[in-house]
Structures are given as structure tokens and as C-alpha cells.
Amino acid sequence: MRTTLAVAADLLREASKRKWFLGLGIAITLVLSTLGLSLKLDVVDGALAASRLFGHLLGGDIRAVDVAMRPVLKGTSYLVFYVGLVFGIVACADFAPSLLSPGRIEHLLAHPVRRSELLLGTFLGVLALALLASLYGAVGLTLILGVKAGLWTLGPVLSALIASVCFAAIYAAMLTTALFVRQAAVSAGVGFLVFFGGILAGVRSDIAPMLDKGFGRSCFLAVTLVLPRLSAVATAAADLAGSTPMPVRSLAALLGGVFVFGLGVLALGIFRFEQKDF
């Protein structure tokens, strides 16, 4: 475990020195600063409340504050979730191919390190990186909402945490892909495939009836069966952020599915890594 953590910590150290990541950190800061300086969000708290976003009344009717703020919180949650995942796929696509590059992998494997430790260390390092970046953005949004509107909520942070769980599953697929094809573009491509496939999988029961009965529909259902239900998780995260009632255990079941998908793909990756000659 110590070696796994050492590999993860090294990955974080390396990322912190890369201009690409420093640039993304600055970009997130700029977006947050722009939002912080330009956002005009007025919430009049009381027994009943209304919200105005850029001068326009949200919804129409004056409602209770938690209801009035739901669209903002849900929107923020979706933003953190989807932008976070896309950011993660693009920013982390290069890590596994870089780890497996000739001259590096044999040097690493020549040390007293188990292959599984090396792979898990890389996986954990990337996850820690994604978690830090998404939490940075989410905490920033939380602070802006809190300072600007007096609305202190953990919604964006919860959404970032849930997005990180989903990213773990996506990155497991990207990492495993890199073990078969050592190309950052292919790794990112598979990441986006799981991302968009996961969005479809979340609404598979709504889409399936639109397809002709038979082979096509069966294929669609079979493929989307194994994919993580990303859009459903995003909706659940948004409901959680907006304090909207949701079915008992639905989020846990969805996250469980995501976890099983990620674990299965990662196990395949570890198996491949153990067998592979470098």
C-alpha cells in the first residue's frame, strides 16, 4: 500500500509541475473570478422568496427560498458534473500512455514494485487529481453562491464528489484501454465513448421504445446495460443539490452500478498489465 501511495503522490507531484495543469488551474480560477465579479443573484429570504438571475425573475411565481433556488442549484450541479467529467477526460488522457512509454515503464518495473501497485497508484493519483480540481471548482462556486446570495449549500461539493466517483469508472476504462493501445487520443476517445454511452444508458428505458423491436433494440439494451448510468447519476446529484425528493436508495444503487463497472474494467486492466511484456 505504501508503494501504491508513493506512486500516486509522484503522479500528483509531476502533474503539479506541468504547465498544462497549472494552466487549467488558472482557467478554473478565472472562470470562478468572472462569475464572482459579474454574477447578479438576489435572493430575498423570508417566509416566501424570489430570485433574480441577471435581472430576470427565476420561475415566475414567488415561492419558498429552497424551491426558488432549485434551478440555480441544479444547474450548478449539472455544470460541475458534466464539465468536471469532460475536463477530467481531456486532462488525464495522457497519464497512462506516458506511464507506459518505452524507457519509463521498464525502469519503473525494474524497481521492487508490484505491477498492480503501479497501476493502482496511477489510478489513485489521477483520481486524487480529478477530485482536487473538481472540488476546487465546486468549493469556489459554493463560496460565490454563499457570498453573493447568502445561500450556503453543499450542493456543488456533493455534485463534485459524485462526479469524481463517475470519473473513476471512466478513467478505469481509459487506463485499461492504454494497456492495449498506448495512445492518449485513443484513451481519451474511449473516455468520451463511456461518457456519452453513460448519458444514453441513464435514459435507456426512455430511448429503447423509440428503436425498432428486434436486434437493434436488443443490442442497444445489451450495450447500455453494462455502462454506468451517468445521466441518471447527474440527475440524482442535481436533485440532491437542489434538495428535491428522490426515490429511496436510488443514488446508492446508481453509484453501486458505476462502482461495479469501474471495478470490473480496472480488474481487466490489472490482468492485462500483469500479463504484458514491455
Binding site: 509541475k17 504547465k19 512509454s101
Partner: peptide, 8 residues
């Protein structure tokens, strides 16, 4: 061909 972390 040792691949070294360039940023370190």
C-alpha cells in the same frame, strides 16, 4: 532510452 519526467 530512459524516459525522464521533464518537469522535475
Amino acid at each position: 532510452r530512459l524516459h525522464l519526467p521533464e518537469a522535475w
